[in-house]
Structures are given as structure tokens and as C-alpha cells.
Nucleic acid binder design. Sequence first.
DNA 1: AAGGCGTGGTA
DNA 2: TTACCAAGCCT
Length: 347
Amino acid sequence: MKHKATFSKDLLKWFEQNKRQMPWRETKDPYKIWLSEVMLQQTQVNTVRAYYTRFIERFPSIDILAETPIDDVAKYWEGLGYYSRIRNFHQAIRDVKEHYNSEVPNDPTTFLSLKGVGPYTQGAVMSIAFNHPLPAVDGNVYRVFARLDNDHFDITNSKARRHFESKVMEVMPEAAGDFNEALMELGATVCTPKAPLCMLCPVQSHCVAFEEGSVLNLPVKLKKVKKIVQQYKVLIIQKDGQIIIEQRPETGLLASMWQFPMFEMDTHVSDIEEQMDMSLFIEDTPIVKTKHQFTHLEWQLEVYIAHTKDIIPENYQLISVEDKNLYNFPVSMTKIFNYYIDNNHQV
DNA sequence: AAGGCGTGGTA
DNA sequence: TTACCAAGCCT
């Protein structure tokens, strides 16, 4: 970010003048602030408002909540989603009554140990209620700092939270709670994911992504692609002291590379013989089972020794083990080849 | 450490 | 319709 020295002051000034009214901003009660933070996890402000008000009217204090059975409490969470939140919160509140004299612990480490309190909730409650100088990094903060610093760090990476926490701490002012709230408020109302209001942004002059025109590309969030599992039988077919290989198609996965003939796991021997136009004797048990990982899929391979006396069709190649360096094999096949040699399965 | 957990809103 | 997003945490 640019002008690091004045960033926090500019943001706080904007927040003073633009913060939205919310029920939980009308109190300094740590219990109520905590409740609001739990409700706001993965849930938008407009959804939370009504739930928060009803909940606090019914359970205005830690003692009252702690003394109510969980099933009665859970009724006040119906429709809000992520229901483990209320079970964990209720358990935590009972712990607070039991072990901390019904007062929210004014100690970040103790507070973090409570059920349902993670790094975000710890930072948010401790800074807003007690002004501890801790970061409270949520999705908004990822986005705001990724843009301020034109930072292309992948936010799905497990190291992302710590990465952005350190950025927050570099500019953390004395008013920690207000600053954390201001960052989230900015992300929720101005520095939004799809249609950010950069022309209204109070820290536009600090924003490198705005300068570079990369705002809409940030933050970087790599797509999670489900790995497809493919299971194959791999045949090492022996004939007259040599073995059979084939070349893969010119396009696609492992284009034009060589491999042992392989067939989907549930292919019957008769179908294999028909496809290869050869008669085969395939041994009953695989000599080895291996896995091979690609970016987007996984091969699970069972390797079988087979024998034939037939003429080899033209689309196959009969080679000697010593000639394997003359052909281009992917790692998966090289491993099988080496296993085959090292374990004396040769003819 | 990657997946599961809920619901409502938006493009 | 589908995909993605929204103040995360637990296992």
C-alpha cells in the first residue's frame, strides 16, 4: 500500500462518519459483541439483525443463557444456518459461567480456548470489547489488503490468514477495535467483490490495485477442482523375452508418450483381447498396485504380468527391457518399469 | 489439511 | 439453472 503512515487515520476518519447503525454497536457488553460475531460468521448483516435482537431480548445475560437448556436456545437460531455455532456458543457460555465468574475472559488466549472461538472471533471480540491490538481477518480483510497491496497471494492457501494478519498488524493503530470494524465495513460496503465503489473509497490514494487496474482480479482465489479417480489395469505383456508398449494419442493427457497397455479396471479379459486383437494369458494377481497424482486426477493402477505368442499388431511395439531409454515414458510408467526390473519379473 | 457445515442473495 | 458469495470453525 502507498502512504502507510496515514492509512489508518484516513480509514478511521471515514468509519466515524459512515458506520452503519447496528444493534450490537449500541453496547459495550462483551457478551453481546461476542454473540454478534458468532452470528455474523458467514452470514450477512441484514440477515443477522432480527435474529440478534430477538436473541438478546430473550437471553439478555450470560447467566440467563447458561441456565437455559440447549434445545430451547436453539429455537432462536432456527433458519440462521450453521447450527453447530449455537451449540458451541452455548457450551462456551456455560464454561464462562462455570469457570470465569460469568464474565467474558479479558485475555485473548483464554478466550480462544472456548468452544467455537477461532482466530477471527478472538481478534474481533478482544479488540472491539477490550481494545486488544489483535487482527480480525475475515473475507473482507483478505479482499481489502489484497487490493491495497496488489497482492496475488492465493486466499485458499492455508497460510493466507497469517499472511494477511501480519499486513494488518503493520498498520494497526491504537484504536484496534474501531480499526478492525472499519476494515470490514469498508469491505462490505465499498471494496466489494464484484462491483467495488472505488470512486467513493476513502483509501483510494493508498490502493496499488486501483492504480494498476487489477482491482477486479483480486483477491486471487484458486478454484478447487475435485480430483477424479481413474482405476486401470496395466499389462506387462511378455513375448519371446521382450515386452509390449504403446504410444498415447497425440493430444490430451501425456500426449504421444509411451506406456504399457492399460484398460479400465472393470474391463474383462475377453474385451482386452478383442481390443488388442491378440490372445493373452494374464496372471491372476497384480505384481504391484500404485497411485499416480496429476493436477486434476488420480490414477490407481494394478500391474499384471501377461503372456502371448501371437503376432504383435502394428500399433504396438515389442521392445527389450534394455531399450527403455529409447522411448519417452511418463513417471507413472517409469516407476512400473523400474519395479518390474528390480523385482526380477522379467522373462 | 481438505471437506463439511445452511441459508439467502445476486449475476 | 448454475455458480458464487457472506464478519469461520471444527475435525
